[in-house]
Nucleic acid binder design. Structure first.
Lengths: 197, 197
DNA sequence: GTCTATAAGCCGATAGAC
DNA sequence: GTCTATCGGCTTATAGAC
């Protein structure tokens, strides 16, 4: 809420752009500072370390990301199958953008696989849990018996499509994942209606 | 087939261990050379660049990896659903090993997301296509109508479970993925028997 | 084919002035 | 809070001897 352009925010914004585009280990602190228009010393005034900056990068992406998924869901006409499938279709559209490079959270967790307790990984894990919980609540509202398992299955298809499309650069995999997700939702729904476990 | 311990093989073996354990950008050429017991100059005699070494690392993992999946599949008693599910159950067991750090192919593609044409990414893409083709052939042999789509769906669940388990360090997601995969196979099988598209 | 030695520069992080 | 200047170490890759 300061009146002047916030230096910290400019640094995080520059970091987000570079880290997502190039990868966190490929981008130096120098490069982030230069892109933000500050010196490295200023950057280290606002952040204790590069690791803290990486965590800040993912933290600013948390809410906007979840909000976008919710938007795609609610703005779609039809039943819950159609709404879930629409998430994947919208994601496929996003993946066709030349600057798309997968899921920032998953890429950081892959890059930092040798540092399991890293703050950025915690933020990524929390983000994905929030998404899974959101799905679970939706399925519970639909009176689906094992909403928790179904939410996990849809999450697995979503994160799988991030990984596969990043590798093959073929967004049609996201549509395949959407079809699979819709099938699983339908199956769970039919089981619940029949009163089965 | 040389009689003496092959220097090139020792280098690739050391690289594989370190790259998988720490990440490709986190490991220096110096570290690989030292682990292999050769000097950096010798390493650069056998490999033109670090990029070529990364590609070699994934290349040696291609066949053993596919062979393991086939082994898990054929050694499982029961129908195709049980066999597919067994892949995920075996993977969950592997993921519980303390040294497990996800899928090497996917992690490289995440680390090199800014270099789409990198030789190592091509090798990873080819590897995953081989796996997908193997699944497709299995489903075709089961007379499943859209074997291609089903193979892609199972692949998406598999790679999704790699990504999610790496993030949460919770191998039960692999069992959830296995359940989902079995459900999708069963669904496709029932559709094919009924003669539907 | 393997070695020693080193180039040339970038890395994360810091000292101290203002 | 932002600057200039720089530390010590590590980076990929190479020159030239044997």
């Amino acid at each position: 809420m300061t009146a002047v352009p916030n230096t910290r925010e400019r640094i995080v914004s520059a970091a987000a752009k570079l880290f997502y585009s190039e990868g966190i280990r490929a981008v130096s602190v120098d490069a982030v500072a230069e892109a933000a228009g500050v010196t490295k010393r200023t950057l280290y005034y606002h952040f204790e370390s590069k690791d803290e900056l990486i965590a800040a990068y993912l933290d600013v992406r948390d809410q906007p990301n979840l909000k976008l998924f919710r938007k795609w869901f609610v703005e779609t006409e039809g039943d819950v199958m159609a709404k879930v499938e629409a998430i994947f279709r919208n994601l496929a559209r996003a993946a066709r953008h030349p600057k798309w490079k997968g899921c920032g959270f998953l890429r950081v967790s892959a890059e930092l696989a040798n540092m399991p307790g890293h703050p950025a990984i915690r933020i990524g894990a929390t983000h994905k849990k929030k998404f899974e919980d959101w799905l679970r609540q939706i399925f519970e509202a639909e009176r689906i018996a094992d909403a928790e398992a179904l939410a996990r299955q849809v999450l697995l298809l979503l994160d799988g499509s991030f990984a596969v499309v990043l590798l093959h650069r073929d967004p049609t995999y996201m549509e395949t994942a959407g079809t699979a997700a819709a099938s699983l939702v339908k199956l769970a729904l039919s089981r619940s209606v029949m009163g089965c476990r």
